[in-house]
Amino acid sequence: MKWNLPNILTTLRLLAAPGVAIMFLYFARPLADWLALLLFLGAAITDWFDGYLARAWKQETKVGAMLDPIADKAMVLVAMMVIVGYSDANWIPWLVLPATVILVREVFVSGLREYLGDTAGTLKVTKLAKWKTTVQMVAIAVLFGRGIFEHYLGMSVWGMDQEMVDQIMSGEVEDTLNIRLMFEGLVWSGRLGLWLLWLAAALTFVTGADYLRKAMPHLKEPV
């Protein structure tokens, strides 16, 4: 492996994937949420920089091309596992379906590429697939942010009764401004995160179907 800067950044991003989960094993919340969010954001930023630098400096390598999508998938899937695992029971049903679509698609496309071997160039990363990865990472970052809001607020918006919601929004509870701001942050980060995650799942499904269509000529049995 050629150790140029783009490949080093890609390798660090791959190593950061399990680091997101490790944050929750060794640190208490909300510190674990903050560290996982910062680690994830740092990895997401390197995802853009390593590709840009490799092209700008003409340092593109076969190893880098192989590791880059693996690092992306590892980061997204580990982060999704952590978010689902540490979400409250009311939220899990809304997260599991899009997370499952993303997981199955990534495994399916990886299997296709492995099966096609030398002809895997048929499944080159498309612009839509790059947008899919971007939306996935933004959705995950927002959902990590929701976890931070929820921990500080000490309650789940899905578990509140209407009376409690009315009290918060009308200012009838202590520390009104802080609680109201955190409550609004929890609500909007949750909604935005879910919308983005479902959008990412839709893009994930479409790009997976596109890759399957392109691979079909190579999957036909000889007559």
Results as ranks from 00 to 15, higher is better:
W34S: 05
V223D: 12
T10V: 12
E114F: 13
A200Y: 01
K132L: 11
Y152T: 02
N7S: 09
M80R: 05
L35Q: 00
V165L: 04
N178D: 09
G121T: 13
G190K: 01
W48L: 06
K127V: 10
A17H: 03
W57K: 14
S156M: 03
R146N: 15
L186A: 15
W188Y: 14
G19A: 15
Q167T: 05
R55V: 10
W131F: 13
V142M: 01
M155Y: 00
N7G: 06
D50S: 12
L53N: 03
L177D: 09
V78P: 08
W94S: 13
G111P: 01
K73R: 15
N178F: 13
G42S: 04
L196A: 09
M216C: 02
G121L: 01
V84Y: 03
P6G: 04
G117S: 12
L14F: 15
Q59R: 09
M23G: 10
Q167C: 11
L219V: 04
V84E: 06
L12T: 00
M216S: 00
S189L: 05
G51N: 07
L95Q: 04
A141D: 06
L153S: 10
L199I: 14
M182S: 01
V142W: 02
M216A: 06
P98E: 12
T119L: 14
A79Y: 05
F149E: 09
S189V: 00
V82A: 04
Y52E: 05
G117V: 09
F24N: 06
F149M: 12
D175H: 11
V101K: 07
Y152I: 03
V157R: 03
G193C: 05
P217M: 08
A201R: 02
K220Y: 06
I148Q: 02
A141H: 06
S110M: 10
L128K: 10
T207H: 09
D72I: 03
A209G: 01
V107Q: 03
T126A: 11
L128S: 13
K73W: 05
A74D: 04
Y26G: 06
L153H: 11
P6D: 10
L25M: 12
I168V: 14
V78M: 12
W34V: 13
R13F: 09
V63A: 13
N7F: 09
V104A: 14
V78C: 08
V63C: 00
I92V: 15
P69N: 04
A28S: 14
K132V: 08
A120G: 06
L9G: 02
L219H: 01
E150N: 13
L103E: 01
G85F: 00
W188A: 00
P30E: 12
F108L: 13
V84A: 12
I8W: 08
L12R: 02
A54T: 02
W3Q: 04
R146L: 03
L12C: 07
S87Q: 04
G117T: 03
M164G: 07
R191F: 07
D33E: 09
D72E: 03
